[in-house]
């Protein structure tokens, strides 16, 4: 079988025509970015683009991919997400000065929830905490989001059982 590019994998994992989350494609994207030398920087660029989609379902799927990769991929990916270069792309989506006024609330809430969970789960990524504090100072985060009951960072997202 031909190896697929990260780009074609993210397109499949976030396809707006998907009826439900396509876990096989999400996992395949995470696995592949770990294998490639330039996987993490390329993956974060692709994810940022999808997260900024005006289509709520496409953005939601991209956020699930991001969340899953943060849980399953290693430090190389964490370090890439922990750069302002990527964090700024998330900030743009929630900030009314950028795309925030036309972003669905569900997408904004999910981004703030993810950022907050990473400040707890990855305290060594100091830029994530700095970005989150800035959003608080700007009044974009009013109170810390309530995280799901399972562990805020380490537990994988709930996924349906196959079959």
């Amino acid at each position: 079988m031909e190896p697929e590019s990260l780009e074609s994998r993210i397109n499949r994992a976030t396809n707006p025509l998907n009826k439900e989350l396509d876990w096989d494609s999400i996992d395949a994207f995470c696995e592949q970015l770990n294998k490639e030398l330039e996987g993490p920087p390329l993956a974060t660029r692709l994810l940022a683009h999808k997260i900024q989609s005006p289509q709520e379902w496409e953005a939601t799927q991209a956020l699930t991919v991001l969340e899953t990769c943060m849980k399953n991929c290693g430090k190389r990916f964490h370090d890439e997400v922990g750069k302002f270069r990527f964090l700024n792309e998330l900030i743009k989506v929630v900030s009314p000065k950028y795309l925030g006024t036309r972003t669905p609330d569900k997408v904004k809430d999910k981004i703030l929830e993810l950022l907050y969970s990473w400040t707890l789960g990855l305290p060594q990524e100091v830029k994530i905490a700095e970005a989150y504090q800035m959003l608080k100072k700007q009044g974009i985060v009013k109170i810390d989001p309530k995280l799901p009951d399972d562990s805020p960072f380490l537990a994988p997202p709930t996924r349906p059982k196959n079959g």
């Binding site: 302002f84 270069r85 700024n88 900030i91 900030s95 000065k97 700095e130 700007q138």
Partner: peptide, 15 residues
């Protein structure tokens, strides 16, 4: 050196 200059170029979005 590359990493250092990347670090210098990595700024939080102006708000």
């Amino acid at each position: 050196l590359g990493e250092e200059s990347e670090e210098r170029d990595d700024h939080l979005l102006p708000m």
